[in-house]
Nucleic acid binder design. Structure first.
Length: 425
RNA sequence: GGAGAGGUGGCUGAGUGGUCGAAAGCACCGGUCUUGAAAACCGGCGACGGUUUACCCCGUCCCAGGGUUCGAAUCCCUGCCUCUCCGCCA
């Protein structure tokens, strides 16, 4: 959520910034609503003040043993006027809240203009696309009949589900363990286990609700629970409604969870293989930091995700998302794209964002500044470290051999019981 | 699933209709003392919002949402959560 004060005091500036995201912010309508709010609030508070003052004098008179009847009759009309004022104020406030809660974050100055992913900018790359002396297969052909089974996934549930078997299932698990170990042992993150079902408050805090409900799976249950679309939701919300001591910052959490996405609106997109599933595993990186350190933290966090790809010796590039492709909560986002020989393309495998105080304000996640003794909003960052399913695809496709087998990357062999190759005949 | 007890400031914990935004303690901040530190003592110390150059002042908030009342932390209703005991269960 944007700072309401910023919106109020620098409305045209905010509107200009929002136009970078192709959002037309109606300054005049907002200004009118805001001045209406001000007017109603002053009026309501005056009435409340009067009620409080009179009630107190009634209390005093009663304590003094005086007759309070005349005082009571004086207050009679006040109640209705106050109730009416309170109600219209609540309506205007609700309207304003809805308006401001729907606005995305302001973009960092370094974010390039652009409408969609075609205008993202490559910042750097690592390694070169893998060279084969044969025609490389994609992961679907490579694993067909050998342990990656989309037909059975569809039988059990529906489209965009998979069943994995044997060495592939093990490799998938090995990747998860490997990622968690690297982040906890080398990058200073603390491993967390969190719920996979969350309530609306949590989804509001990280910004999925109210605007992006159609992307979520909602449970048919008395409680309004949702399956998490990413562990960013439960992990970031750990600090919701908390005031954190300065010396505890930065907080660095990592968690492995399944993620569930409805993929509404992506019909016909990536229908083949494991790239876009309704259920996938992800190892997430979350940082809760001092506001002045979030930009530095974004570079670090991105580096932590990159480190996984480097250890796996997978070629990738780092993309800076343009204005039109940056998510609503983020002020700036780097995507990591891994080389997929089967597609002959780089594909997103991680997304690392600094949301600054956007989520923190929605969550009321604060820290106490020792200099001022006041509470201030923290900054929150998140990034995939990495999407496990897509990493599995990347390993399979980049490490395939001409006989259809797949060599296990050196970094993973310890997690595979020393196994060097899978899918051998 | 059955029975009971609770949800109050950063934390612990008083407060059952009238200057209660709320005792006390801890933590924290400032000061006195001390060579320094600790202890002791003195003082300060909730969040959010409105107005204001600022001070002040005002409003809202004692789990959430309704209700009763001139007036609610306190009474009533609903929901959520926590704890204890019993039952069931991975």
């Amino acid at each position: 959520m944007l700072d309401p004060k910023l919106l109020r005091n620098q409305t045209t500036f905010v509107a200009e910034q929002l136009s970078r995201r192709n959002i037309v912010f109606n300054v005049e309508a907002y200004t009118q609503l805001e001045s209406k709010r001000r007017e109603l609030q002053v009026k309501t508070q005056e009435l409340q003040n009067e009620r409080n003052t009179r009630s107190k004098s009634i209390g005093k008179a009663k304590a003094a043993g005086e007759n309070i009847q005349p005082l009571l009759s004086q207050v009679a009309e006040l109640g209705d006027a106050l109730k009416a004022a309170e109600q219209s104020l609540a309506e205007v406030q609700a309207e304003l809240e809805q308006l401001i809660q729907g606005l995305p974050n302001l973009l960092h100055a370094s974010v390039p203009d652009g409408r969609n992913e075609d205008e993202n900018v490559e910042i750097r790359h690592w390694g070169e696309p893998t060279v084969f002396d044969f025609e490389p297969k994609d992961h679907v052909d490579l694993t067909h009949g050998k342990g990656m089974d989309f037909e059975t996934g569809a039988k059990l549930t529906g489209s965009r589900f998979v069943v994995m078997q044997g060495g592939i299932a093990r490799l998938h698990r090995a990747l998860t363990q490997f990622m968690l170990d690297v982040h906890t042992q080398h990058h200073g993150y603390e491993e967390m286990y969190v719920p996979y079902l969350v309530n609306q408050d949590s989804l509001f805090g990280t910004g999925q609700l109210p605007k992006f409900e159609e992307d979520l799976f909602k449970l048919q249950h008395d409680n309004e629970y949702y399956l998490i679309p990413t562990s960013e939701v439960p992990v970031t919300n750990l600090v919701r409604d908390e005031i954190i001591e300065a010396k505890r910052l930065p907080l660095r959490f990592t968690a492995h969870t399944p993620c569930f996405r409805s993929e509404a609106g992506s019909y016909g997109k990536d229908t083949r293989g494991m790239i876009r599933q309704h259920q996938f595993e992800k190892v997430e990186l979350i940082q809760i930091v001092h506001p002045e350190q979030s930009w530095e933290a974004l570079e670090e966090l991105t580096g932590h995700a990159e480190n996984i790809l480097q250890r796996l010796e997978l070629p990738y590039r780092v993309m800076l998302l343009c204005a039109g492709d940056t998510g609503a909560a983020a002020a700036k986002t780097y995507d990591l794209e891994v080389w997929l020989p089967g597609q002959g393309k780089y594909r997103e495998i991680s997304s690392c964002s600094n949301t600054q105080d956007y989520q923190a304000r929605r969550m009321q996640a604060r820290w106490r500044n020792p200099e001022t003794q006041k509470t201030e909003l923290v900054h929150t960052l998140n990034g995939s470290g990495l999407a496990v399913g897509r990493t599995l695809v990347a390993v399979l496709e980049n490490y395939q051999n001409t006989d259809g087998s797949v060599t296990i990357p050196k970094a993973l062999r310890g997690y595979m019981g020393g196994c060097k190759k899978i899918l051998e005949k």
